[in-house]
Design a protein around this nucleic acid. Structure first.
Length: 255
DNA sequence: AATCGACGCAACCGCCGCGCG
DNA sequence: TCGCGCGGCGGTTGCGTCGAT
């Protein structure tokens, strides 16, 4: 099914799948140029053969300079548990309380977390099943990873929240071992993004990039000289910061 | 060394709400 | 008031990686 985006307008062929480095750089550039809105328009003028939605998602979940990279910390994990107990699957809302984390990231984390918890619950129950065989309340024991299961598990999580804090500590020990292995690639990913930002920040490459994208005639390119990459840009230029709603509102007002 | 399964993550899909003409 | 387009959100899928066997 070639789902040409209805909102995408008259794009010849819409690309799908993983983003290339060049696409990333291109997207970053045009977001700087046009701001984080009018995604369909941005997708069109940028020459990216992507839908606006896809561009937005890529930006929000991966390219945004304010993103925190690396594993979810124990502190964040507790927060997620708490907030999920409060709000349920309002991932974007939860994400706003976790600076630098995206709803997608938290959502993914929750799924795997719940899978783990469900399995632990299962093994626990198996351990105690001999004493109470009739308590087959399937809510917490179905270890399938479907979303419906996780939501039903959320209620048990609410109950298990106090317990979970200790579980978090236990899990932290087990995950930290894994973390050692994972840290390298994650760090590398962060470095790659920094490199990307550095490259983009290097003013001299702009013309080359524009030429190579073949869209130099489509938009007027302002001479913006970013003094430093990601973080400064985030503070000074970006309309949206994950961790600061007030900043966002102020930015909107000043525009 | 090869295979298999679990896990983690990026990306897509469909629905919904809001703003605008 | 209504219809349309766009952006945002939650759910789901697909794929790459890694560890166990």
């Amino acid at each position: 099914m070639c789902n040409n985006s209805s909102a995408g307008g008259a794009m010849a062929t819409t690309r799908k799948g993983p983003w290339t480095e060049q696409e990333d750089a291109q997207l970053v550039w045009f977001v700087r140029l046009l701001g984080e809105r009018r995604w369909d328009f941005l997708a069109q003028v940028s020459g990216l053969r992507r839908t606006g939605k896809s561009c937005r998602l890529r930006w929000v979940n991966y390219l945004h300079p304010g993103l925190k990279r690396g594993r979810i910390t124990a502190e964040e994990e507790r927060l997620i548990l708490n907030l999920h107990a409060q709000w349920g699957s309002r991932w974007s809302r939860i994400a706003r309380k976790l600076p630098g984390r995206t709803d997608n990231e938290i959502k993914n984390y929750w799924r795997t977390h719940m899978r783990k918890m469900a399995q632990e619950e299962k093994t626990k129950k198996k351990g105690t099943a001999a004493s109470s065989p009739s308590s087959s309340s399937t809510s917490a024991t179905t270890c399938s990873a479907s979303a419906t299961d996780t939501t039903s598990l959320a209620t048990t999580t609410t109950d298990a929240l106090q317990e979970s804090t200790s579980m978090v500590d236990d899990e932290e020990a087990t995950t930290s071992a894994r973390e050692e292995k994972k840290e390298v690639p994650l760090y590398c990913a962060a470095v790659e993004m920094d490199q990307l930002w550095n490259e983009i920040a290097a003013a001299e490459i702009y013309p080359d990039m524009m030429m190579s994208w073949g869209c130099s005639g489509q938009v007027a390119v302002p001479v913006v000289e970013p003094t430093s990459p990601a973080w400064e840009f985030c503070a000074d230029y970006s309309l949206w910061r994950i961790d600061d709603e007030e900043y966002y509102n102020n930015s909107i007002n000043t525009l």
